[in-house]
Structures are given as structure tokens and as C-alpha cells.
Design a binder for these strands. Structure first.
Lengths: 133, 133
DNA sequence: GTAGGATCTAGAGTCGACTCTAGATCAAGT
DNA sequence: ACTTGATCTAGAGTCGACTCTAGATCCTAC
């Protein structure tokens, strides 16, 4: 019943998040953990489920192209606690417009790619049906 | 009336495509021009409108994340001329599925970002309407 | 003929985000 | 006691795609 957060090793977190242990240490150095990672006996990192949750958010922000400096800024704001929600919002909105634009551009690219694939499908279907060529 | 393709300098092509002159030379070295760029007097590059068209296709493929080696392969196939349309198709299809997947993932990321923006909008609206806090 | 600007080549440098290495320490199993 | 495997730190290396530099050459306009 007193099941608090179960304390994970860096290896377990790596497995759960898909990040490498190298990347986890790297993120910590870069100031991407919203609370400093606790250390167990022997100086080993001890992660909580909250850390894992935070990391999955980071992974999504990174996957959508947020650069590390921006992610660090956001982390810093969260670390400072309540009161700077407007700044966090601003940061997120900036990223939001970037992602939206990127999505639109990718869509346009895909349109062209789809078109080209169609063209080549026609050509290939034709030459396959016409062995004389 | 005998207006063939108007022969562009590297600077003009840079301006038209948005690529830098450095990038244009780099692409050429990398084998990304489907025909070797012609040279005018003094060894200067002379581009045709066809080259510009080819480059705009390359730009779109690059913008959608096709790596240079793949682009070089595709270039090579086009350079070889007719008869390898099935290989070109295969290459394009591979890229197509990658872009489609990337588009889907970006969409999922954006969903989360939109959600978070919404959450912070609520918070900010609340604290703004409640100066006691 | 000379100053300015565009172009040439070869090759070095940059940037972001990791990834890997070396050498030490530690925990668990036999 | 000993081996194995995970972890630690500091710092070097990698990768992709350019970008920039240096020094030479070449047109154009004055």
C-alpha cells in the first residue's frame, strides 16, 4: 500500500524509454532532468517513475524537432516551479507553430512523392505489360 | 524563337533555388546533378533550366529527409536513362513510406503539444483572471 | 590598366546530438 | 576469492550536411 515510486537504475530507464544509458547521462549533463537525478549507494543514479514520465515528454519534444537548448529552457522553467506558466506557454507555442509548419511542408513534399510514385507505377506497369520494349 | 534554355551562372541558380553557391558545388561533387554541369569559358559552371528543375526536385526530397546517398543513387539511375524505372520506383516508394511514417509521428507529437498548450492556456487565463494569486 | 565582384579548386571547419572509450568502482553469484 | 556485468567520470570521436577559407583566375566597367 505504501508503494511509492519504485526506483529504477539507469539501465532499466534506458530499456523503458528507448534512450541509451549514454544519452541519459548526456541529458542530465545538459540540464534536461527537471530534478537532479538522485544517487544511490556507490554514487549510482536512481530514477523515479516521474523521471521516466518526464523523459517520455522530452522524447516527444525532441522527436518533433525541439532543439536541446529550448528543451533545457523549458526544463529550467519547470524546475523553478509555479509562477512562470506564461513563459512555458510561450515556449510551447513557438514549438507548436514550428511543428505545424513542418507538418504542412512534409505534407507538400509527400504530395509530390506520391505523384512521382504514381508516374513510375504507370511506366513500370506499361513496360511490364509490353515485353516488346 | 530559338529561345533554348537560357544558361545561368551559379550565382543565379543559387538565387533561384535558395541553395548557396557552396551547396551547389557541394551537390555536384556529391554526384547529385543528373548531367555533369557544363562549363563555360574560364571553367565556369553553366546551368540550364533543366538543372534548376532537377535541383528543385532534389530540394523537396532533401526537405522530406532523403539522405544524400539515396539522392545520389536516384540521380545515378536517372542519369543512366530509361530502363531502370522499377529501381527508381523502389527507391521512391521506400522514401514514401518513411515520409508517411514521419508525418504520422509528427502528427502524434503535435497532438500532445496542442494538448499541453491548452493546459497552460487554461492555467494562464486563470491566474490572469485572479490577481490574488 | 586597374579596381571590384563573381567564380574557381582543394581542403579545413562547424554544428547538433549523441556515441564511444578508458580506466575505476561496485554488486551479485559460485 | 574471483569473475561477470552494470555503473561511474571525463573527455574524445562520429556523422551528416553543409559552410567557410585561402589563394588564384576571370570578366566588367571605368
Amino acid at each position: 500500500m505504501t508503494e511509492v515510486t519504485p526506483n529504477l537504475s539507469i539501465g532499466q530507464v534506458a530499456e523503458r524509454t528507448g534512450l541509451s544509458v549514454h544519452a541519459l547521462r548526456f541529458y542530465e549533463r545538459e540540464g534536461i532532468m527537471f530534478s537532479p537525478v538522485r544517487r544511490g549507494p556507490g554514487g549510482r543514479r536512481v530514477y523515479s517513475e516521474d523521471d521516466v514520465e518526464w523523459l517520455t515528454l522530452c522524447i516527444i519534444l525532441r522527436a518533433s524537432g525541439m532543439p536541446l537548448p529550448a528543451l533545457r529552457q523549458y526544463t529550467e522553467l519547470v524546475r523553478q516551479g509555479e509562477g512562470n506558466e506564461d513563459e512555458r506557454l510561450e515556449l510551447l507555442r513557438l514549438h507548436q507553430t514550428r511543428v505545424t509548419a513542418q507538418l504542412a511542408e512534409l505534407g507538400r513534399c509527400l504530395d509530390l512523392i506520391n505523384f512521382k510514385v504514381g508516374v513510375y507505377e504507370d511506366i513500370v506497369a506499361h513496360t511490364a505489360a509490353d515485353p516488346a520494349r
